[in-house]
Amino acid sequence: MVRHFARGLAANLMLVVIAGAVTYVLAALTLDPRSNYVNRNPPPSPAEITATLDAYNLNPDTPVVSRFLRWAGDVLTGDLGRTVAGEEVTEEFGRRALTSTRLLLLATVVGSVGGVLLGSWNAVRHERWTDRVATLLSFAVLATPVFVTAVALQLWARNLNEAIGSTVFEYTGEYSPGATGTWDRLLSRAQHLVLPSIALVAFQAALFGLYQRNTMLDVLHSDFVRTARAKGLPRRTALLRHGLRVAVLPLLPLLAYNAVLMFTGTAFVEKIFGWHGMGEWLVDSVLTDDVNVVAAVGLFTAALVLVAGLLADVLHVVLDPRSRAS
């Protein structure tokens, strides 16, 4: 089993390497980091700019192949290069990954579990009005881009705050800098977490709800649920213990990919709510023509896909005995 995974890992690692290389080369060819320096005050001399660009391996005049080789060599030693501002990409990387984790952990768990439960409930109550309304709402949530949801949430929160007369909902950053003391800090963090979490949970719950509803409908009339009922299990027990347990299997890869890929997938939420995580970095790096950061994020995303695939495989093997056979 371990060897099986190891082999898959090796092959997929190749894909990650290719993906990283493609990202770097495309970014190096299309982005021009020079603009970051030209507008500085006082304006640096062209020679200074070139020197800085060369130092950071960002000079567009250097052939892309030699830039790539230098970058790849550094990556192999664990050095992801420098940002246009001259910071270590690796350091910034860790900080932002942590920020994203704080934002995502709760929302992903609630969204995934909530979606699965919502979908199952709707499937069991198939064709009743609750099911119809929930399905329509789910489609509506999916039809709304996350940035619209996020901005709308901000607008409503602001109005609510005004109506209430105090700042109940916070919608910028991770916590208020003014908050002091452990409890104040925690409260402030919680306040800041609510709105972005709602945006993330709504989206995930809608998506997984629809999927789970479909897979659950497939097992609702399956032979093995009928057998479970024929044993004397009440309908609810048969559906939960036998139906849901099997119906959730096709969702595992989705849940795994979602959980992992959310790291870079929250660009909108992070950007709009001012969280300095990976998603925001992704957008900012392109906006500032920051080639090394773009490449780092690209590599990271590709590696995440790999991790997600592994996670899905492991979950599959753990939860589905059929996959353990050859």
Binding site: L15, T23, T30, L31, T264, A267, V286, V305
Partner: peptide, 22 residues
């Protein structure tokens, strides 16, 4: 299948964003 795998691994949003300057 390898091609599909590779395109899935590519950071799509990032690449479109990078290329969209063109």
């Amino acid at each position: 299948l390898a091609l599909i795998g590779l395109f899935l691994v590519l950071p799509g949003f990032l690449l479109v964003a990078v290329m969209s300057t063109l």
